[in-house]
Design a protein around this nucleic acid. Structure first.
Lengths: 369, 369
DNA sequence: GTAACTAGCTTATACGTACAAGTTAAAGAA
DNA sequence: TTCTTTAACTTGTACGTATAAGCTAGTTAC
């Protein structure tokens, strides 16, 4: 005994095939079919539902069910694609990384598909789901909230199962041991701080982000430099902030430090150049001068170092080159030409001095407090 | 309110994608899911039914429902894609435009494929060829060297033939009469200049780009404001430059003007905020002060207006919103839901004042020199 | 004439019930 | 032990009901 819904299905299919239903023509309504076959609406819907999912029909809410146009079976070859997932694609140095990757990948005949997470794990999840459900050859990903355990870890493991290569840039989840391209952030933080210690500073404030690995590593370097120099670190001089607090907390905290002469540091190590810009505003407000009263140093050596009246020191970040390298690495792993050559890269930091650092005025000095 | 069965569907799909359900592994039974989600079995069956027809799962009568092995079947469900072609994707306000578009398009379930031209017509050509030879549903393009005739015009005409909709942002090729989203650049240039004229300035320098339409339009506004105010324009006070000359010519020319007191303008209208940053360096070099000696005004109201010690006036640019609008417009045209609603947008400029403009010191004024 | 409303159609979602049919493994009989 | 039965579970088919939501055309009100 064939099920009723299969009879209905066959009946409609025949009408499509013999031309009784022409493409885009409305077929009988569900209730008409209910009466015609003397079955329940559920049965009719089951038959139509399957025909829709098989491409014979399509439905329009409130209008009716229509015969599909099956003449379109032409599908052209699709170029291979690489997905890039970034946290804040429009800000700061990220666009440069993307441009580097785009440049390499378009030369290598790959499409670049872009996903932006806004540092939102839900968005990262939906990006990964999209990627897993299409054909993407590889992924360049900048991890979201890299200092914490990532709930999307399963998706990354599944990428490995499905042999879709991915590389992580700027930071990476330790537990995954993925291919990665990162700065030596600890050394970078060390170099920032060491430079200031060498100049004779003894009271150095450090402002670091605490929800990505870069921040915690740079702070580690900050502490290491102090330890090595035998200079004690005053916990009050360390300020940490999360991405959400970016535009409030660090500025307020540093303002407090600068206001009280007893607390005031003679130098400030900043997590990145964006932060330097914010801190410079505070310094101007307090009528202090750089580098006479306060030395300051940023990280990433972005174009911001040159935009203001104070051209400030920073640590060089590969930016565009990192994008290119990431693209090259992923293409290598896809095309498998050189299994051995493909490996992670740790970029060594480089100090770029400008006129924002100098020996401290006090201690030996003459500037009034 | 998303339907319940879609939630169930998404839940199961996530489990497949993140690998919780491995291929050929039995998933939870229908009644387990009924209890878990507290919905009827009908709802569960609807969700599973769709996932089966989409190839995520398969069922065995009397045994259970299983995760399908998608590894070879994977090529089928390709998401629709929109291409974005930009001139300088990493610089200045462009990343914000892209982010706006990405945000809208990912919500609307489109992939974003990125092409960067570096203002190189050859690259624009190869991007268009790529797009035409794949299945791309629509294009958002920022024209390359828009002030000149475009040799790639045939590709755009061919896009029209193939009924692939495109919209142009920031500028557009007049001869194509495409859908477009642009600033009212002439009015913007007019407002910059008018503000300075209203303050009493009579010798205003204008620095404009000459290889895109934005530049020529803004200059037109600059001239119109002068004409309307009855203030003659000294041709020596107008500086134009091409993209290639961006980092040399405008700075040198303005330096010449500022050095000679007889030529020195009391105010400067800049093509955009990036240029203001460069000009501010020259002003500092010449030991002039803003706004006492010189007023200055930028265009685009980018974050640069707040980075330096002088917070400068600018003309507001929609940036992220422009990206969103462009995406909405292209999606509208693809899905054809509202043929009449889809139309070009001209954004009206808005003057944002900060502390970079004031009445001129000489002439009628009281501010000490 | 036009605009707003409404009745009546369509499909969409969701609850319930019942029984059929296939599979599995434990319980019981040989 | 080995075979058979059966209980308990799985998915499959099929009915009924209700309400929501979208579209269209005709009617009404202005």
């Amino acid at each position: 005994m064939t099920p009723k819904y299969k009879n209905v299905k066959q009946f409609i299919k025949s009408k499509v095939l013999d031309g009784s239903y022409q493409p885009h023509q409305k077929i009988h309504s569900e209730y008409e079919l209910v009466n015609y076959f003397d079955v329940s609406r559920h049965t009719i819907r089951q038959a139509i539902g399957e025909l829709v999912s098989e491409g014979w029909l399509y439905r329009e809410h409130g209008v009716g069910t229509f015969c599909a146009d099956r003449s379109r079976f032409l599908q052209q070859p699709v170029r291979k694609s690489i997905a890039i997932i970034t946290t804040y694609m429009s800000d700061y140095i990220f666009p440069h990384i993307i441009r580097g990757a785009e440049s390499y990948l378009s030369d290598a005949c790959y499409n670049v598909i872009l996903f932006n997470t806004n540092n939102d794990l839900e968005k990262e999840k939906s990006a990964l789901e999209n990627i897993l459900s299409q054909r993407v050859e590889g992924i360049i990903v900048e991890p979201t909230r890299s200092a914490f355990t990532n709930p999307n870890i399963n998706y990354y493991l599944n990428l490995e199962n499905q042999q879709i290569p991915f590389v992580m840039i700027n930071a990476f989840y330790e537990e995954l041991e993925p291919f990665h391209l990162v700065m030596n952030d600890e050394k970078g933080g060390y170099m920032q701080t060491r430079h200031l210690l060498d100049l004779g500073h003894e009271k150095i404030a450090g402002i670091f982000k605490n929800d990505d690995i870069q921040g915690t590593r740079r702070m580690k370097g900050f502490l290491k430099a102090h330890r090595e120099a035998g200079t004690p670190v005053d916990p009050n001089q360390i300020i940490t902030y999360s991405t959400a607090e970016k535009f409030g907390k660090p500025v307020e905290k540093i303002k407090q430090l600068l206001k009280e002469a007893s607390q005031r540091p003679t130098a400030i190590v900043c997590y990145n150049d964006e932060l330097v810009i914010q801190v410079l505003d505070v310094i101007r407000e307090e009528k202090l001068s750089v580098p006479d009263d306060i030395s300051i140093i940023g990280f990433d050596d972005s174009s911001l170092t040159e935009t203001t009246e104070i051209k400030f020191a920073s640590i060089k970040h590969p930016k565009t080159k990192m994008g290119e390298d990431a693209a090259a690495l992923i293409v290598d792993r896809i095309e498998g030409a050189s299994e051995d050559r493909a490996e992670s890269i740790v970029y060594e930091p480089e100090l770029v001095l400008r006129n924002s650092t100098a020996a401290p005025a006090s201690g030996t000095s003459s500037i009034a407090t």
